[in-house]
Simulated assay, not measured.
Amino acid sequence: MENILIDIQDHVAVVTINRPTKLNALNKSTIEELHQAFAKLSTDETVKSVIVTGSGEKAFVAGADISEFANFSVEEGGKLAAKGQELLFDYVQNLNKPVIAAVNGFALGGGLELAMACHFRIASDNAKMGLPEVTLGVIPGYGGTQRLAQLVGKGRAMEMIMTAGMIDANTALNYGLVNHVVTQAELLDFAKGIAQKINKNSGVAIAKAIEAINANYQDGVNGFEIEINNFGACFGTEDFKEGTTAFLEKRKANFPGK
């Protein structure tokens, strides 16, 4: 892969978007490579959780590569958004393993949309986040209008999108857009620490929880029904047997992930 790096250690995969001269902007080939990476990691039994970050100290992802679509037609623009959401943003949101965004520096446009597609976000204290698409005469097309409102509320999302303004890390923390703010030097280790806490638990149960939580945000889907079904399904897993047995035996569980 030309645009991303993957490092797997201690059951944690770190996916780094590596286009530092372009501030890690998302172009077509990077989106394709990210899809391939996530597809592979979803079935890799050595990986229990994933961290996504950007190379260098300036940017997580500073947006999309505008030069690729500046001359698109109406039809081409619609297809661009649909394909991107299918390949990457919706795919990440629904991945069967936890995906943590380690937001270092700028996360703008498609970069913030990628961070929001992750299951939660940690930011460096120099991070800046925003959706500036209206300055180009277009709107966010990779789920930004939907996920930002879900995360920060309708009014704040309206203001952020309409003003095209950036918010800093502490404001993002106050809005609930990120879970934690740490120094840039601490960011990756902090994210890995949370990943390791997650990895001690049942991967099967976590996958079911991700599906149930996401169901609440899907039109026409009853999240409570998904929760009930997934709760019941857990009873047929080896992880459930191990978890309950370990509890009764007063020992730490060693989940097989099945």
Rank of each mutant, 00 (worst) to 15 (best):
E2I: 08
N3H: 04
D10H: 13
V12G: 07
V12L: 07
V14S: 13
V15G: 12
V15R: 11
R19E: 09
P20M: 09
N27W: 04
E33D: 11
D44F: 01
D44I: 03
E45T: 15
K48E: 02
S49R: 04
G56Y: 02
F60I: 08
V61P: 01
I66T: 12
I66F: 09
V74Q: 12
G77R: 11
A81L: 11
A81C: 14
K83L: 13
F89E: 00
D90S: 14
L95T: 13
K97E: 04
I100C: 03
A102Q: 09
V103G: 05
V103L: 05
G105I: 05
L112T: 10
R121D: 00
R121L: 11
D125C: 09
A127M: 06
P140W: 04
Y142K: 02
A149Q: 12
K154R: 14
K154T: 14
K154M: 11
A157Q: 06
E159W: 11
M160V: 07
M160N: 08
M162R: 12
T163P: 04
A169C: 05
A169I: 03
N170C: 01
G176L: 06
L177C: 13
Q184D: 15
L187E: 07
L188N: 09
D189I: 05
D189K: 13
I194C: 07
A195D: 07
N199K: 11
K200S: 06
A205D: 00
I213C: 02
I213P: 00
N214S: 12
N214R: 14
D219P: 04
G220E: 09
E227D: 06
N229A: 14
A233Q: 15
E238N: 12
D239G: 08
T245D: 10
E249W: 00
K252L: 10
N254Q: 13
F255V: 03
K258R: 10
